[in-house]
Write a protein that binds this DNA or RNA. Sequence first.
DNA 1: TTCCTTGCAAATCGTTTGCATAATG
DNA 2: CATTATGCAAACGATTTGCAAGGAA
Lengths: 131, 131
Amino acid sequence: MPAMKYSRQREAIKEFLMTRKDHPTADVVYSNVRDVFPNISLGTVYRNLTLLADIGEISRLRLGDGVDHFDADTTPHYHFICTKCGRVSDLDIDVLTQINDIAGMNFNGQITGHVTYFYGVCGDCCDEQHS
Amino acid sequence: MPAMKYSRQREAIKEFLMTRKDHPTADVVYSNVRDVFPNISLGTVYRNLTLLADIGEISRLRLGDGVDHFDADTTPHYHFICTKCGRVSDLDIDVLTQINDIAGMNFNGQITGHVTYFYGVCGDCCDEQHS
DNA sequence: TTCCTTGCAAATCGTTTGCATAATG
DNA sequence: CATTATGCAAACGATTTGCAAGGAA
């Protein structure tokens, strides 16, 4: 693991991510950071997102839609994906550690964790249906 | 949705999947079905896997490893991924419908389901560590 | 004969990487 | 000055798609 040097671009990427709670993709990060660094390349964005995720300063979300999402909030929490608009939002519940034990019943091996995401229709899309 | 016609290739793909409980990828399906149809193309495998998944005869698993896995067992159940060997196996527990309700607390919207996969070390890999 | 399915190859999408140059320590 | 980071473009792996030819209803 090489020593990390400061870079304005990386800082801008992280700062942008911290302003958002909708878990943007690399592409969204790219087009937004380009407002500040018009010459930044998509490769640099990917490199820094990967680097930040590796050192634990951000987290990478694989939600099964084929695209990686990124989150400046690294505390363990669950996510919700709206099947109408695709929006990703945080859920305000405790981590369900007990389901690891439930899953471990009748299983030959050690279960150390789980990944869960919930889906359904978000508040905004529910409102649209009623109007 | 166009009417579906019989095809030997599709049949072979589905039959192969039914013999396996390790959730193979499209590539694994391809190389195995090629033993029966040496001229089958990867495109045909993908087309049929997608078609079968769309009509609900098989299910497509996105486990966050960047590759799609396929399962002839379409009944709802949970999966376990070994972080050592990458093997995917079924878990013998009931579906935890109650966690949808838990997740729905303090949430403005409707939660209709969830996707969960567990990870850890499988029985075989545990044994290896001890020997 | 109609229209679905195939094999093949090219295209697409998200992501990674090699390389010469620029910036950091 | 040593080394990491950048921009660019090419490479990549998984998956999809256009097309002409083959097979099912």
